[in-house]
């Protein structure tokens, strides 16, 4: 019996870690979700996060203000997202190819421009206990002894859910992802809605990158994002394009990773190949299960299709 105790005991710190390691992925996942709900597939998340992370670092490094850095991160990724918009919405390029190009370009550019700053440190965001709430037993340390960006990430899914499900804009956004012709018939320009989705989504993805620079590492290092952008792309699908499930998916994934690390530290041999496969296997399994139960995965019907410019 007492053999199990340490494994139970590390659950708590594992959850604490999952919240903070999950935060950047959560921002990116929600950002990609907004874009895909509007019908734009953006596989450039990885590159956008890199650019966002570098811009956030530079903003904070030169002004000393992490909040300014955060804005830089968001807006720079928004610019990248608009580049994707320019290629796909104006120049009619393929969304799949443009996204891949964006990842290659963004990763390269951020590493290239960041070279002179490697391993320079910044102040960034540090843990900030929420008064009262942080002293709740068990839950307090997990949820309320984190940094301020994590607290923002608690509110964000609710905001997004409200935006997507309860506002006219959200309705237009979802409709644009499903059937742009109907949106146009209703007198709204689907192109404009997609631009809005790209900008909002890009900004959120940028915050994810910024989190890595400003809160996780608090310095600039090469290849800071290391594949987290791709995990975000997978999680959007895992979440069936729903913000609530996205939160669940992100914390499930980061929680399992965090727990397995700790189990390994306690001396259990975990086949790490399986661990690294997990998010991808999970996504496939969930999609398969839903298909077997005859449920629709909820993919926006017009995802990855371009609007015809003549229309």
């Amino acid at each position: 019996m007492e053999d199990f105790l340490p494994y139970l005991a590390v659950l708590l710190p594992a959850m604490t870690a999952a919240i903070s390691t999950g935060a950047p992925i959560l921002y990116a996942t929600l950002g990609e979700l907004v874009m895909e709900r509007g019908g734009v597939l953006n596989l450039g998340v990885e590159g956008m996060m890199m650019v966002g992370a570098l811009a956030a670092f530079l903003g904070c490094y030169h002004t000393g203000s992490p909040w300014f850095g955060l804005l830089c991160g968001g807006f720079s990724a928004m610019l990248m997202s608009m580049l994707h918009g320019a290629i796909c919405l104006i120049f009619q390029g393929s969304q799949v190819v443009s996204g891949l190009a964006l990842t290659i370009f963004g990763t390269g550019l951020a590493n290239y421009l960041g070279t002179p700053y490697i391993q320079m440190k910044i102040q960034g965001f540090t843990a900030l206990d929420v008064p009262l709430l942080s002293s709740i037993p068990v839950l307090g340390p997990i949820f309320f002894q984190q940094d301020v960006l994590v607290y923002l990430s608690y509110i964000l899914p609710f905001l997004l859910w409200w935006l997507l499900m309860r506002t006219r804009f959200g309705l237009a956004l979802r409709a644009t992802g499903e059937n742009p012709a109907a949106v146009r018939a209703a007198g709204i320009s689907p192109g404009a809605v997609r631009w809005a989705a790209l900008m909002l989504g890009g900004f959120l993805v940028g915050l994810g990158g910024a989190y890595l620079a400003l809160a996780s590492m608090r310095m600039w290092v090469d290849n800071l994002v290391s594949g987290r952008g791709w995990i975000a792309v997978a999680l959007v699908i895992f979440a069936f394009w729903r913000p609530g499930r996205a939160v669940f998916g992100v914390y499930l994934f980061s929680g399992i990773t965090a727990y397995l690390f700790r189990a390994q530290a306690l001396g259990v041999g975990i086949p790490t190949a399986f661990l690294s496969m997990l998010p991808y296997l999970m996504t496939l399994a969930v999609l398969l299960a839903s298909s077997l139960r005859g449920k629709d995965s909820g993919a926006p019907a017009d995802l990855a299709n371009n609007l015809r410019p003549e229309d």
């Binding site: 340490p6 005991a9 590390v10 710190p13 594992a14 870690a17 390691t21 890595l212 996780s216 590492m217 290092v221 090469d222 290849n223 800071l224 290391s226 990773t257 965090a258 690390f261 700790r262 390994q264 530290a265 306690l266």
Partner: peptide, 16 residues
């Protein structure tokens, strides 16, 4: 070389 991941791995050791 994955600074954020390697930091997490160290934190997991510190946790136990």
């Amino acid at each position: 070389y994955d600074p954020a991941l390697e930091k997490d791995a160290a934190i997991s050791l510190l946790d136990i």
